[in-house]
Design a protein around this nucleic acid. Structure first.
Length: 628
RNA sequence: GCUCUUGUAGCUCAGGGGUAGAGCACUUCCUUGGUAAGGAAGAGGUCAUGGGUUCAAAUCCCAUCAAGAGCUCCA
């Protein structure tokens, strides 16, 4: 998540609420700045707040800081800590502060030839009625509202983590600064625990597990952000789709299939083209048109121009499924008695995300939404939203994903990116807020997070690195029905405009499975496991027995294989454990004699010997119930 | 898109201006072993791609492509 709030000024209230840990981290940021100023006196510092998990300080510096420099910086920090400097607060007048900044004295150890440029700018951002506070530790003076810990000696458990770049004040038009991240804790033990947690998190990264478990592959030659689902991953996806589909039937949805492309005209009407052109793959233009234009010596700019104006037609890879579903709806006349019409599709869409945004399965350029569009009357909106939210909760509940937050995305009153009139927006926002309240979960309202056609409720979860991802979403839309002129005949025998609800409980299959891999650390519940059982013969003498067991289980729909490698059982177990296979069945002389199998569970270990039929019925029940 | 870092065997990674390295995986042989690695041998790489510097480039420089982190963006 962008940390824009950290680059904005905090209110004094927020500062006073800073926790002890945040205060410590903020002070450690100053210690780091002091060390950097000692090593590179020409460093120009911008902002250095605490953040979740640590702190950073933005610095403009000729020298390119790399992790190789961390040792030296940390060594210098150690000295500053050892000197046990007092953090002193000074209230000064605006002019005094400005004078210091102009002589380069802010965020520095002494006066310099160049002024403290960022500090001057930050100074100007401080409201007139607010007092200007400086903090000093040793010779290091900084413009800072605080608060701080008492002495630098308190900052004894810290570690520099990484260096990245960030635009000054988060604006891409501003210069880029080097952002040095670090973390700090009360003591070394807590720091050690934190670092250990980070290490564990790395182990469950879906990109690492995706490779190890052979779930998906992204190939350079296919293209950035285009996911190839390998057989193991495809099983997981298929199971999830089956799961959702069973609920679709219960909730009165109809499944449809629509193509991956559509005419530009479709997207002109919906408003996607040319508005979102930057994040779309370029249009597909018919060969004859291209030929003619080439012969006319037409430039690329001219081509784009004509496409925009509709002088030549083209096709677009669909960035959303809604326009297609709208056309399905529109192909029939509808009476209010037919509503709601609920059209569902696992629809693949393509969005040309910026290259720097792509990553693993969570941010990709082609993805499949478990999408649906509901067409209903105004009176039905509330119940339909509730039905959608119910579905999202069933999905997340079944998978044991309780660690999510709910966000009600509203329009940003100052932005012009939204279509439709404010009255309809108000209605839609009220309906959503209303539904969110009845959800029984806390939610936040966030202006500016709406879709361009309507407000939405998002279910947001964190990945192992702590980044937030939107998964399930429910969006109310009063606008696209108008743009497309959708109708139904009401009880009064006149034409009315239906309301549309867009909803996707998983969001996208790619992102959802990515998050799911991390959620389960690769240990999927048995109904999702690519391989559910592996039979391990003790030696090759029992290979035939293993084959027989495999056959029985397969006939009952279990995903099972036998490991007949020329290895000891310990090695076979190790491999099965690494593959995160829920059940291992060991067959040797004892079992052969007793007509049983020894069951080993990947987490519970050796569970003793039982008959194959009993094991089978237990496993079938575990699968059927989708137990965790 | 921007900044920085990275790209060496299927995987994880070491090395580094002068004939390419390890572990795992793979193949073959020995071994028939009871709950997280039995032993041996073998095979496997234009060191991402394209240029440049050099007697000599995997190594240094530039560009491109891709990955990672962060920022900006995300219908």
């Amino acid at each position: 998540m962008p940390e824009t709030e950290d680059t904005q000024r905090k209110t004094l209230d927020q500062r006073n609420q800073m926790s002890d840990l945040e205060r410590l981290r903020h002070s450690t940021a100053h210690v780091m700045a002091t060390a950097i100023a000692r090593l590179w006196p020409d460093a120009q510092f911008a902002a250095g707040p605490p953040v979740e998990g640590g702190f950073y300080y933005d610095v403009d510096l000729e020298h390119r800081v790399s992790p190789d420099d961390f040792e030296a910086i940390e060594a210098e920090m150690k000295k500053v800590v050892k000197e046990n400097q007092v953090f002193e607060r000074a209230i000064v007048s605006r002019d005094e502060a400005l004078d210091m900044a102009k002589s380069g004295r802010l965020a520095a150890l002494g006066e310099r030839d160049t002024p403290s440029t960022f500090k001057i700018d930050l100074l100007n951002d401080i409201p007139e009625d607010e007092e200007i506070s400086l903090f000093k530790n040793g010779d290091f003076w900084d413009l800072c509202a605080g608060p701080h810990v008492g002495r630098t000696g308190n900052c004894k458990a810290y570690k520099l983590m990484s260096v990245a770049s960030a635009f000054y004040k988060g604006d891409a038009a501003n210069p880029q600064l080097q952002r040095i991240y670090g973390t700090a804790f009360k003591n070394k033990t807590q720091l050690g625990e934190h670092l250990e947690r980070l290490e564990e998190a790395k182990q469950r990264d879906h990109r690492k597990l995706g490779k190890e478990l052979d779930l998906f592959h992204i190939d350079e030659m296919v293209g950035q952000g285009l996911v190839l689902w390998k057989p193991n991953g495809a099983i997981i996806r298929q199971e999830l789709q089956n799961f959702i589909s069973s609920h679709l039937e219960r909730q009165g949805y109809s499944q449809v299939f629509t193509p991956h492309i559509g005419k530009l005209d479709l997207y002109r009407t919906s408003g996607h083209f040319p508005y979102y052109q930057d994040s779309q793959y370029p249009p597909i233009v018919e060969r004859d048109n291209l030929q003619t234009m080439a012969e006319d010596g037409c430039s690329c700019g001219e081509l784009a121009n004509r496409l925009e104006k509709g002088e030549i037609e083209g096709f677009l890879l669909k960035p959303m499924n809604c326009p297609h579903h709208i056309k399905v709806y529109q192909s029939n006349h509808h009476s209010y008695r037919d509503l709601p019409v609920r059209l569902a599709e696992f629809g693949t869409v393509y969005r040309y995300e910026q290259s720097g945004e792509l990553g693993g399965m969570t941010r990709v350029r082609g993805f499949t939404q478990d999408d649906a569009h509901l067409f209903c009357t105004e009176e039905q909106v509330r119940d339909e939203i509730l039905g959608c939210l119910e579905l999202v909760k069933i999905v997340l509940g079944t998978l044991g994903m309780e660690d999510y937050r709910v966000r009600v995305g509203l329009r940003d009153p100052d932005s012009t990116k939204y279509v439709g009139d404010p009255e309809k927006w108000q209605k839609a926002e009220d309906a959503l807020r209303d539904a969110a309240k009845s959800l029984g979960t806390d939610f936040t309202e966030e202006p500016g997070e709406a879709a361009f056609y309507g407000p939405k409720i998002d279910f947001v979860v964190k990945d192992v690195i702590g980044r937030e991802w939107q998964l399930g979403t429910v969006q109310v839309d009063y606008n696209l029905p108008v743009r497309f002129g959708l109708e139904y005949i009401g009880a009064d025998n006149t034409s009315h405009t239906p309301v549309m609800i867009h909803r996707a409980p998983f969001g996208s299959m790619e992102r959802f499975v990515g998050v799911l891999i991390e959620h389960f650390a690769g240990k999927f519940p048995i109904w999702l496991s690519p391989q559910q059982v592996r039979v391990l013969p003790i030696s090759e003498k029992f290979n035939d027995d293993a084959d027989a067991i495999v056959k029985t289980l397969k006939e009952n729909g279990i995903r099972v294989s036998a490991d007949k490698a020329d290895e000891k059982v310990g090695a076979k177990i190790r491999l099965a454990q690494l593959d995160r296979i829920p059940y291992m069945l060991i067959i040797g002389a004892k079992e052969q004699e007793a007509k049983q199998v020894s069951v080993r569970h990947r987490d519970r270990g050796d569970e003793g010997a039982i008959g194959v039929d009993i094991f089978l019925s237990n496993v079938l029940e575990e699968i059927r119930s989708r137990s965790l």
